[in-house]
């Protein structure tokens, strides 16, 4: 008993479980079928949402058990392909993940060197600051029409949107990390007559690495948020398209499944970068 009292993790875990049970319970109650027959139904509508829901005896909102069954169905067969509009949720997630990683990777290739330059040179910092300040607050989706018009390819356009939303946090954090490297570390390099390239790679980069990684973590989080919206716009493939397609199918259970999976993948991306950040963090 004392072990239980002393372990915060155990108690928190139990509380989480209680909250989960409460939510599922409330959900179950809210979706219980109601007795009695409702008003006469438009047969078209009845066909669309199912007879039970149309007559009002069953809510069109799925019960937790329905969701569970749907998730299980997707888990058993995540990679099926039955036509261009009916692909497994695993394939859709893979499309989204691929776009995010590609856009994010390209953004890192641009943002880290450019951030280095901004952090090192007060002149470049001053010169680029107005552009960054104006472009940074723009919603990445606002770029979409411009991207579609200039690139003329919806898949590349969504990658561009990911690129543009990932670039800012990495750029700003890299510049900040590079600009705030402790002067005494730079002085060590100077007194040892270390050349500029060796100083950049052996002193500035490791010193700024934790800050750069924080920027990357923010970026990948934003990119994962934006990809869903971007894919809803461009359509075709991806988890965002999947959600919108299931909305058109009025398959709430599939939408809820997708929401949970989006959350799970986002968590994994964040934890992955947190792990990388831990590798380059140094205690002072």
């Amino acid at each position: 008993m004392t072990a239980f009292k002393n372990s915060l993790g155990l108690r928190a875990g139990l509380l989480s479980l209680l909250i989960f049970v409460a939510i599922v319970g409330l959900w179950q109650i809210a979706t219980l079928p109601t007795a009695g027959t409702g008003p006469a139904m438009d047969p078209e509508y009845a066909k669309l949402v199912g007879a039970a829901a149309a007559t009002g005896t069953k809510s069109s909102m799925p019960t937790p058990a329905d969701i569970g069954a749907t998730i299980w169905k997707h888990v058993l067969d995540p990679f099926y392909v039955r036509g261009s509009n009916d692909k497994g949720i695993g394939i859709q997630l893979a499309y989204s993940l691929g776009r995010v990683l590609l856009g994010f990777g390209l953004a890192a290739l641009v943002a880290v060197p450019l951030g280095f330059l901004i952090g090192m040179s007060p002149l470049v910092y001053r010169a680029l600051d107005p552009f960054i300040q104006i472009l940074k607050p723009v919603s990445p989706l606002a770029w979409m029409p411009l991207a579609l018009y200039t690139i003329k390819d919806s898949a590349i356009s969504s990658i561009f949107v990911i690129f543009i939303c990932s670039v800012w946090p990495m750029l700003i954090n890299t510049a900040f990390g590079v600009g705030s490297v402790r002067k005494e570390w730079l002085n060590v390099a100077r007194t040892l007559e270390v050349g500029p390239f060796r100083t950049a790679f052996k002193v500035i980069l490791p010193a700024a690495a934790p800050t750069i990684m924080t920027g990357m973590r923010i970026s990948v989080g934003i990119a994962w948020l934006v990809i869903v919206a971007a894919e809803m716009l461009v359509g075709g493939t991806g988890i965002g398209y999947f959600v919108w397609n299931e909305w058109n199918n009025l398959s709430i259970a599939n939408i809820v499944t997708a929401i949970l999976l989006i959350g799970l993948v986002g968590l994994l991306l964040d934890q992955g970068l947190a792990y990388l950040a831990k590798l380059v963090t140094y205690p002072e």
């Binding site: 005494e184 570390w185 002085n187 060590v188 100077r190 007559e193 490791p206 140094y282």
Partner: peptide, 19 residues
């Protein structure tokens, strides 16, 4: 006219590279 390896500095705050 600048720093040199001939003149080594021991800094007040040791200035070790923590990584």
């Amino acid at each position: 006219d600048g720093p040199s390896l001939d003149r080594a500095v021991i800094f007040q705050g040791h200035a070790l590279l923590p990584w």
